[in-house]
Simulated assay, not measured.
Amino acid sequence: MECTGRAGLRLPRALSLAVTGLCNLSCRHCLVEAGPRADPHHVPADAIRRIVGEFAALGGEELWLTGGEPLLHPQWLDILSACCRGPSLRTVGVQTNGALLGGAQVGALRALRFEGLRIQVSLDGSAPRTHDRVRGRGSFERTLDGVRRLVAAGLGGHISVAFTEMRHNMDDLPALLALVEALGVRRVVSGTLLAQGRAAKGELAPPTPAQYRALLSRYHADGRFQQLYAEHGEVAAIEWWKGRAEAGPDCCTLGEHPYVTADGTVYPCALCRVDELAVRGAFERPLAATLAEAMPPWSRLLEVKQRRHGSLRPCLECSGRLHCGGGCMGRAHAATGDLMAVEDRCELRKAVYGWREDDGPRAGRDPAAVLRPCARRSHPTR
Results as ranks from 00 to 15, higher is better:
Pro128Arg: 03
Arg90Pro: 05
Asn97Ala: 05
Leu17Lys: 05
Asn169Glu: 13
Val342Trp: 02
Ile51Trp: 06
Cys251Asn: 15
Trp298His: 10
Ala221Met: 08
Ile119Trp: 09
Val151Asp: 07
Gly136Gln: 03
Arg187Thr: 02
Ala205Asn: 06
Ala294Pro: 01
Cys30Leu: 00
Gln227Pro: 00
Pro36Ala: 00
Val43Ser: 12
Ala182Phe: 08
Gly136Ala: 00
Trp240Val: 06
Val188Leu: 08
Pro207Gln: 06
Pro286Ala: 15
Ser26Met: 00
Arg85Pro: 01
Pro361Asp: 05
Arg50Pro: 01
Arg213Cys: 06
Pro314Asp: 04
Gly107His: 05
Arg308Tyr: 08
Arg186Cys: 07
Gly116Cys: 05
Leu183Asn: 11
Leu112Trp: 04
Ala278Val: 02
Ala182Met: 12
His232Ile: 07
Cys374Thr: 15
Pro40Val: 03
Ala369His: 14
Gly255Cys: 07
Cys269Leu: 10
Arg356Tyr: 06
Cys3Val: 11
Ala270Gln: 12
Val92Asp: 08
Leu316Ile: 04
Glu293Asp: 15
Tyr219Gly: 07
Pro249Glu: 10
Cys27Asp: 00
Ala82Leu: 03
Arg308Lys: 15
Glu246Pro: 00
Ala82Asp: 13
Ala363Val: 15
Gly59Ile: 13
Ala152Glu: 14
Val235Leu: 13
Arg118Lys: 12
Arg187Ser: 15
Gly93Ser: 13
Glu284Asn: 09
Arg187Gly: 11
Pro174Tyr: 12
Tyr267Thr: 00
Gly103His: 07
Arg356Val: 03
Leu216Phe: 10
Ser26Lys: 06
Arg133Glu: 11
Gly197Ala: 02
Gly325Asn: 10
Gln227His: 12
Val94Asn: 03
Pro296Lys: 13
Ala210Gln: 12
Ala108His: 04
Ala270Gly: 03
Gly107Pro: 03
Ser122Phe: 03
Arg28Ser: 01
Glu69Ser: 01
Ala335Phe: 10
Glu203Phe: 02
Leu348Lys: 07
Lys305Gln: 14
His168Ala: 15
Val43Asp: 09
His29Gln: 05
Leu348Glu: 06
Ser16Thr: 13
Pro12Lys: 05
Arg280Tyr: 04
Gly156Cys: 08
Arg362Lys: 13
His131Ser: 04
Ala182Asn: 14
Leu123Cys: 04
Asp39Arg: 14
Pro268Leu: 02
Cys23Glu: 01
Ala199Ser: 08
Leu9Tyr: 10
Gly223Thr: 13
Asp263Ser: 14
Asp344Thr: 12
Ser126Val: 04
Ile79Pro: 08
Phe283Val: 13
Ala18Leu: 11
Asp132Asn: 03
His232Thr: 12
Leu101Gly: 02
Ser160Cys: 13
Leu271Arg: 11
Arg135Ala: 00
Arg372His: 09
Arg6Lys: 14
Ala153Pro: 01
Pro209Phe: 07
Gly248Trp: 02
Gly330Glu: 07
Ala270Glu: 12
Tyr219Trp: 15
Ala200Cys: 04
Gly138Phe: 02
Met340Gly: 12
Arg376Met: 10
Gly223Glu: 15
Glu181Ala: 15
Arg377Tyr: 07
His131Met: 01
Arg280Leu: 08
Ile238Met: 05
His309Phe: 15
Val342Tyr: 02
Phe140Ser: 01
Lys242Pro: 09
Ala245Asp: 15
Ala262Pro: 09
Ala294Asn: 07
Pro36Asp: 00
Glu276Asn: 10
Val134Asn: 00
Leu228Pro: 02
Thr336Ala: 05
Arg349Lys: 12
Ala351Gln: 06
Glu256Ser: 13
Gly102Cys: 06
Arg90Trp: 04
Val266Lys: 05
